[in-house]
């Protein structure tokens, strides 16, 4: 387990990063619907991912409505790709041992 990125490995954060990896950018509402996380829970995980430099958060407006745009940074995409590789390797090793 030492190979796995601890920031991403947490299930909710893995879900967030995995979802953002498939898009160029998304807003908070989409991420909340797709992840099924509550507003507060999602905000706290996003703050951790932003702190790690994996997610970029842009607060803007669409007309008069506040809009929070989220993007995976280059570091975040690389970290997710690394996580997938490490996970596949671990699962292959575990399968080989059985």
């Amino acid at each position: 387990m030492t190979e796995l990125d601890r920031v991403i490995h947490e299930p909710a954060r893995l879900l967030i990063v995995g979802l953002l990896n498939g898009v160029k950018e998304a807003d908070f509402v989409w991420l909340m619907h797709e992840s099924g996380l509550t507003r507060g829970n999602l905000s706290s995980h996003l703050a951790k991912l932003e702190e790690a430099g994996y997610v970029e958060i842009e607060k803007t407006f669409r007309g008069k409505i506040p809009l929070t745009i989220l993007r995976l940074t280059r570091t975040g995409r690389a970290a997710f790709a690394g996580y997938r590789k490490a996970m596949s390797r671990l699962l292959a090793e575990a399968g080989g041992r059985q």
């Binding site: 898009v23 998304a26 509402v29 989409w30 991420l31 619907h33 409505i65």
Partner: peptide, 8 residues
């Protein structure tokens, strides 16, 4: 987008 969110 106002209902279930926006993605690009």
């Amino acid at each position: 987008y106002p209902r279930t969110g926006y993605i690009e």
